[in-house]
Computed example of a mutant assay.
Amino acid sequence: MTSPPDTSTVARVAAVLQTLAAAEGELPVSAIAQQVGRERSQISRMLKALAATGLVEQNPDTRGYRLGWQLHALAAKAGDQRLVRTAQPILRALVAETHETALLSVPQANRSFTILRERSTHSLQAGGWVGRTSPLHVTASGRALLLDSTSEEIRELITGDLGASGYGPNALTSLPTVLARIAQERERGCTVADEELEAGLVSVGAPVRDAAGHIVASLNISGPTSRMLRCIDSYSTAVKAAARRLTTAQARTHRP
């Protein structure tokens, strides 16, 4: 019988790959080891093993590591690709209408995981949100994923993040506050996070549903407070309409 995988090793491999995914370019072994919190020699051996499979690549000149093309090929087959393909033109249309960056996210454990981004020409951000996870209670994308959840389900999902440091000045810090906000947003059909995740950032989100009516993703736009708050009502209308279009398109693509 094959032995079960060492979950600690799996977790370390996942941490290394996630660290490289979040980087803007190559990373030296020392930087990866520091971010993962492991010995340099241990991470070096792991990277060599991953490089042998093509999941990471090493630049022969700089000796830095980056994600490999083999991982890109695997990622192309991950998740619901019909959702991504269907969402792309809808996100582009939303960017054209609002001139703000549009994102598509899905639930991943107790996080909102961004799988697609259409960037606005107004965006000055060099990096991207794709592949990043965010707390559910302080993001428009996250709370949109929670709109159908019960109070107990919400408590279980967000308790570990409530009161954590490093969020924006308007971050929600208690369960009653989060539940009250979600109740209000459930009535409106959209979510607004005003400097909750980080200072100067506002986001508007809405849920995307499958053919059975279950929330499977969230669509949102985000931008600087100075622009977003001036047009929050029109942006909310646009995001809800885009989410409805994606919901309808999803239902069509999943018909037998």
Score class of each variant (00 low, 15 high):
65 Y>A: 00
25 G>K: 05
51 A>L: 01
8 S>V: 06
59 N>R: 08
17 L>T: 03
43 I>D: 02
13 V>I: 03
55 L>V: 12
9 T>M: 08
41 S>N: 11
38 R>E: 14
38 R>M: 10
15 A>I: 03
58 Q>K: 01
61 D>F: 11
54 G>Y: 05
65 Y>L: 05
39 E>S: 14
39 E>L: 12
8 S>L: 13
53 T>A: 05
64 G>D: 10
68 G>V: 03
50 L>A: 03
48 K>Q: 15
9 T>W: 04
39 E>K: 12
14 A>Q: 10
19 T>C: 12
15 A>D: 13
65 Y>K: 01
31 A>P: 04
31 A>Q: 07
20 L>H: 04
66 R>P: 11
33 A>Y: 13
67 L>T: 04
21 A>C: 00
20 L>T: 01
33 A>E: 12
72 H>Y: 08
7 T>N: 08
67 L>H: 07
16 V>A: 09
18 Q>D: 15
27 L>K: 04
63 R>M: 12
49 A>Q: 11
35 Q>K: 15
43 I>W: 04
46 M>P: 00
26 E>V: 10
30 S>G: 02
59 N>D: 15
48 K>A: 12
25 G>A: 05
20 L>Q: 08
21 A>K: 09
24 E>D: 14
29 V>S: 09
7 T>R: 12
58 Q>W: 00
45 R>H: 04
36 V>L: 05
65 Y>R: 05
10 V>M: 09
32 I>D: 08
34 Q>S: 15
32 I>V: 12
66 R>E: 15
49 A>C: 09
52 A>H: 08
70 Q>A: 02
70 Q>W: 06
9 T>V: 11
62 T>D: 06
17 L>M: 12
71 L>A: 04
49 A>F: 01
28 P>G: 00
56 V>S: 02
72 H>Q: 10
24 E>T: 06
15 A>G: 04
40 R>Q: 11
57 E>H: 10
64 G>W: 08
28 P>W: 03
24 E>Y: 01
37 G>W: 13
20 L>V: 04
63 R>S: 09
64 G>M: 09
27 L>T: 07
48 K>S: 09
44 S>L: 11
11 A>L: 14
28 P>E: 04
9 T>A: 13
41 S>A: 15
21 A>Q: 14
21 A>L: 13
40 R>C: 00
29 V>M: 03
71 L>T: 00
35 Q>N: 15
19 T>F: 03
30 S>T: 07
40 R>S: 05
56 V>W: 07
44 S>N: 13
39 E>I: 01
29 V>N: 09
57 E>M: 06
36 V>W: 02
41 S>H: 14
60 P>L: 08
55 L>F: 12
43 I>P: 14
30 S>P: 01
68 G>N: 06
23 A>E: 06
41 S>M: 06
69 W>P: 13
49 A>G: 04
39 E>T: 08
46 M>W: 00
72 H>I: 03
13 V>K: 00
15 A>C: 06
